[in-house]
């Protein structure tokens, strides 16, 4: 028997051995990138033909699903009606709250008279290791924020309290230097008195007023406010906090007063920026 005759007689076996060899070869290289790329290309073109089929096959099951949904439609309708009623009540309450909020804003807006407008800004970032130093707000040059603009908080709705000033401004963000930061120095005075000094941060929630004259009449409980100093942009009469303790430094000869802040500087989700 010649080779040709053998191949003709055992054609199926020869073919099978060839196909099996190729298959085993493919199994061994199935994870190769070329194979995967080829498969992706084929799947892309075959997927185009399969999508309409999937839609056609899915149609009856969608119909069945809709019929099943219709059975529960009455219950769902009741539930939605109830929800709509509640939503209507919420809407009325929201409108009332909006009016109250607008009124409050109007009141707050008149407090710093003639000193620009208050711009609400969301606190975008506050690093844990710089909690009492700096934070970043989601307002920038585009919104009219300028360097040294006072940053306030209105957590206590009766008034606004200064918590820092704008340190640097980017297009859409700005960095706020909190008054508790050691680099911060703000001119302050005692409300109703002539005493003035510089509020210096010390990294704690209780900054100190330095350079108070020894004869100044400062006592615990006195209200501390900002003072306007030309040519600074800092606006006067902004609430800072109240004096906790006063002591005379024998080394410098000045009095210094520890101040507890009026604004809650620990919890800040949004702030107000006083822009010109």
């Amino acid at each position: 028997m010649t080779v040709r005759e053998f191949l003709r007689v055992h054609q199926a076996t020869v073919r099978y051995l060839g196909c099996a060899s190729v298959s085993v070869g493919l199994l061994s290289v199935s994870s190769a990138e070329t194979v995967q790329a080829f498969r992706s290309i084929a799947a892309y073109f075959l997927g185009l033909t399969q999508q309409p089929v999937h839609r056609v096959v899915a149609y009856p099951s969608d119909i069945a699903g809709r019929l099943m949904a219709a059975v529960y439609a009455t219950d769902e309708n009741e539930r939605l009606r109830d929800l709509a009623k509640r939503m209507h009540v919420y809407k009325i309450r929201a409108e009332q709250l909006e009016q109250d909020h607008a009124r409050m804003r109007a009141v707050l807006g008149t407090r710093p008279t003639g000193m620009g407008r208050l711009l609400n800004a969301r606190v975008q970032r506050r690093e844990p290791h710089q909690w009492f130093n700096t934070l970043i707000i989601a307002r920038g040059k585009r919104d009219g924020i300028v360097p040294d603009a006072p940053v306030l908080t209105d957590r206590c709705m009766e008034s606004v309290q200064i918590i820092g000033r704008i340190w640097s401004v980017e297009e859409e963000t700005a960095r706020v230097l909190l008054i508790t930061d050691p680099l911060s120095g703000i001119p302050v005075g005692i409300a109703g008195k002539t005493a003035q000094g510089v509020l210096l941060g010390n990294g704690t929630p209780e900054p100190t007023i330095e350079y108070l004259l020894p004869e100044s009449d400062v006592a615990p409980g006195d209200r501390v406010v900002t003072v306007t100093l030309p040519p600074g942009i800092m606006t006067g009469n902004l609430d800072v906090g109240s004096v906790v303790s006063v002591e005379l430094s024998p080394r410098t000869g000045f009095k210094s007063a520890r101040v507890t802040l009026a604004g809650n500087i620990s919890v800040l989700d949004h702030v107000l920026v006083l822009v010109p």
Partner: peptide, 30 residues
């Protein structure tokens, strides 16, 4: 003989269409 070759080719096609290991269906159907 045609069944072996057809099985192999259809297996390759199935391997392309289905997320199986490439060559597994080819060997099976062949």
């Amino acid at each position: 003989a045609p069944a072996v070759l057809t099985g192999f080719l259809l297996g390759l096609c199935a391997d392309l269409l289905q997320p199986t290991v490439f060559g597994a269906n080819a060997l099976r159907l062949a």
